[in-house]
Design a binder for these strands. Structure first.
Lengths: 276, 276
DNA sequence: TATTCCGATAGTGAC
DNA sequence: GTCACTATCGGAATGAG
């Protein structure tokens, strides 16, 4: 199906020489049913190396496995460049949820708020994140266009056999994609989230899963570098964000601490959102 | 089987004329498998009358149903006298768990700490509670004697065909029975608990279930009337009792707030206790 | 200090 | 804020002819 965003085929475009022969799935790793079965590392099954930041006792997480051995994960790895590895989140918190992993060991254990103080690094990551968002939007379009009123004209043209080059534009999924990072220092490896806004996922199980993406705890990549006095650098502020009342990402309704109620509401909003 | 406590057959002894024709199960309501099936009132299924104490909004409980219509509950009602009704607790917190319900409407909505300030009332209830404890001990003996080392000589004599009148004494289950009330004003009808000390029951599900019987929240009937300054009259003291660390009734081991761990321990203690 | 159901909250262990 | 598992803790409903 032709897409209103059309970068899905761009998947291997930025791949570096050293990874070319091993890290490239056939065309698009979203076609995972055809990919060879591999076992992704458990989120906690990485090497037990400790953080290089001097904050002992925290796990670096398993994301480093994707960087060091992307060829081992053909189902998860969507793209490898000299600077980043793009993977599908193993526990997606929305219909589409990708992670962009900077590969530089000098960066990937840093707090994102500080890592992105470096404008050059930020610029590289930002470019590749936008590229990743195009891949994400293409996949979202593939999944949702048939339900979308905004894509109806395009859908009908496709059914009528109109050539791809002459299709009317469909829904602009790319503009809905969210790109950013979690604020608080965590045990995990530096990673940028690229995801659809719906929060419609079985993996959204805890209040932190929701509020870490739907409060100022989530920092859009466009907001970097943060001002020195940006309150989002404050741990106290961010802890409070995670405990905030739930607010529907779409309609703004407040749910207090009623997580189960929020979840039921998200089901309804997802159906409405699909149809727009 | 002959019992070292032998009041089981005394079940209907104190029955009043007005209840005689309706409230008497065949011999002993513990033989419940033979009793007609009836549906006991749910613990909260009483009439919607509110407490006479002026504390609106609390359930009065359904115990009054047993008093007003004991004949409707042949499986639960063990004995009816002019003063009390003895029933099996619908949610037994130990191997044997009976409730003795004073029948006087002028008393049964009172706080037990005050109701038992009346020596005459207390004396009547105490006598009938001791009688109830004999019934309870007889049933406990029936259930546990075969496991009991203290009853071994009696068990062997029974197997050898020794006449009941000449059997050696078995384990003194009556001395282990606990008789008393819960301290704090509750939504429920005045009732005296008669129970074995084991706390071995699927119905022990919450910390209050345990601590309400194994802290000073439980007041032995023998301790009444309480002195005017007895700390057990204090609501604050009793609230604290319910939140105390769990202490094994048998070995004294402390379990903090680890209820599940306590439960596992109680299983072990029950097996040991049975065999003593 | 009625029960039961549901659900929010907290601690842990993972290698 | 990694997940998954266990368990503790907390509120609300409950009946009724």
């Amino acid at each position: 199906m032709a897409e209103s965003v059309d970068d899905a085929g761009d998947f291997a475009g930025g791949e570096s020489a050293q990874d070319k022969q091993t890290a490239a799935p056939p065309r698009n790793a979203f076609t995972e049913l055809m990919a060879p079965k591999t076992k992704p590392p458990k989120p906690d099954a990485g090497k037990s190396s400790r953080s290089a930041t001097g904050k002992g006792g925290k796990w670096t997480g398993a994301l480093v496995e994707y960087i060091e051995h992307p060829e081992r994960f053909p189902r998860e790895v969507l793209r490898v460049t000299p600077n980043t590895v793009l993977i599908k989140d193993l526990y997606p918190k929305a219909t589409i949820h990708l992670l962009l992993l900077p590969r530089d060991p000098a960066r990937y254990l840093m707090n994102p708020r500080e890592a992105f103080d470096d404008g050059t690094f930020l610029s590289v990551v930002r470019d590749e994140a936008v590229s990743a968002a195009r891949i994400a939007a293409a996949e979202l379009s593939r999944q949702l266009s048939s339900f979308s009123a905004s894509s109806q004209a395009q859908n009908e043209a496709i059914d009528a056999g109109v050539l791809a080059a002459e299709l009317p534009p469909g829904r602009d999924f790319l503009s809905e994609m969210r790109i950013g990072v979690h604020a608080h220092p965590s045990m995990d490896h530096l990673h940028v989230h690229i995801f659809s806004p719906d929060m419609h996922s079985d993996k959204v199980k805890h209040y932190k899963h929701y509020n870490s993406f739907n409060t100022p705890f989530f920092i859009p990549l466009d907001d970097f570098p943060l001002a020195a006095d940006d309150e989002r650098r404050s741990t106290a502020f961010q802890n409070a964000n995670l405990k905030r009342d739930f607010v529907c990402w779409r309609c703004g309704k407040v749910f207090g601490n009623k997580f189960a109620e929020l979840k039921r509401h998200l089901e309804i909003e997802f159906e409405l959102w699909k149809k727009t």
